[in-house]
Simulated scan of single mutants.
Amino acid sequence: MAQAALRKETPDGADPLADYLGVLQMPTERLVERVRAGFPFPELEALRVRLGMTLQEAADLAGIPGRTLARRRQAGRLDPGESERVLRIERLFALATQMLRDGDRARDWLKSPKAALAGQTPLDYADTEVGAREVEHLIGRLRHGVFA
């Protein structure tokens, strides 16, 4: 599986894919700097692999049209808006992986429709910041045993 190439052993046995970019523990100031500078293109590639998608599917999630994707690949860097959307997806993946303790299960959860999200998948629902916050709230409720 493609994710195997990204896996590294961790001393505590945690899934190393849970927070691949460090979005849950990186200081906010550092995240802001990285987003403003634009993520290196390989971070979109790495997210694509973890989500089990084609590059175009991952780019669609991040709101990057096909022609722009080709330019970003050539330039080697995403713009700040695209980086922010990649960060949004990465954060949801990290939170879902923490909740389910497994990157593969988190990926499947994010791609499966949820009644609490009007029948949409968490990834589709998170195409806006407001939707992403609702997915985060859903993850929080599930982690704390609140199913409604």
Score class of each variant (00 low, 15 high):
residue 2 A to F: 15
residue 4 A to T: 15
residue 4 A to P: 01
residue 5 A to D: 11
residue 7 R to G: 09
residue 8 K to A: 12
residue 10 T to Q: 12
residue 11 P to F: 14
residue 17 L to R: 14
residue 21 L to H: 14
residue 27 P to C: 01
residue 34 R to T: 10
residue 36 R to Y: 10
residue 38 G to S: 00
residue 42 P to L: 03
residue 44 L to W: 05
residue 44 L to Q: 12
residue 46 A to Y: 13
residue 46 A to I: 15
residue 46 A to F: 14
residue 50 R to F: 07
residue 51 L to P: 08
residue 52 G to V: 05
residue 55 L to Y: 05
residue 56 Q to D: 12
residue 59 A to K: 09
residue 59 A to R: 07
residue 64 I to Y: 00
residue 65 P to V: 01
residue 70 A to Q: 07
residue 70 A to H: 06
residue 71 R to T: 14
residue 79 D to K: 12
residue 80 P to Y: 04
residue 86 V to H: 10
residue 87 L to C: 07
residue 87 L to I: 13
residue 88 R to H: 09
residue 90 E to F: 09
residue 91 R to P: 06
residue 93 F to S: 00
residue 97 T to A: 07
residue 97 T to C: 10
residue 98 Q to W: 13
residue 99 M to S: 06
residue 106 A to I: 12
residue 110 L to K: 05
residue 116 A to P: 05
residue 117 L to T: 13
residue 118 A to N: 12
residue 119 G to T: 07
residue 125 Y to R: 02
residue 127 D to F: 15
residue 128 T to D: 07
residue 138 L to P: 01
residue 139 I to G: 06
residue 139 I to W: 02
residue 140 G to A: 03
residue 143 R to W: 11
residue 143 R to K: 11
residue 146 V to F: 06
residue 147 F to V: 15
residue 148 A to I: 15
residue 148 A to K: 11
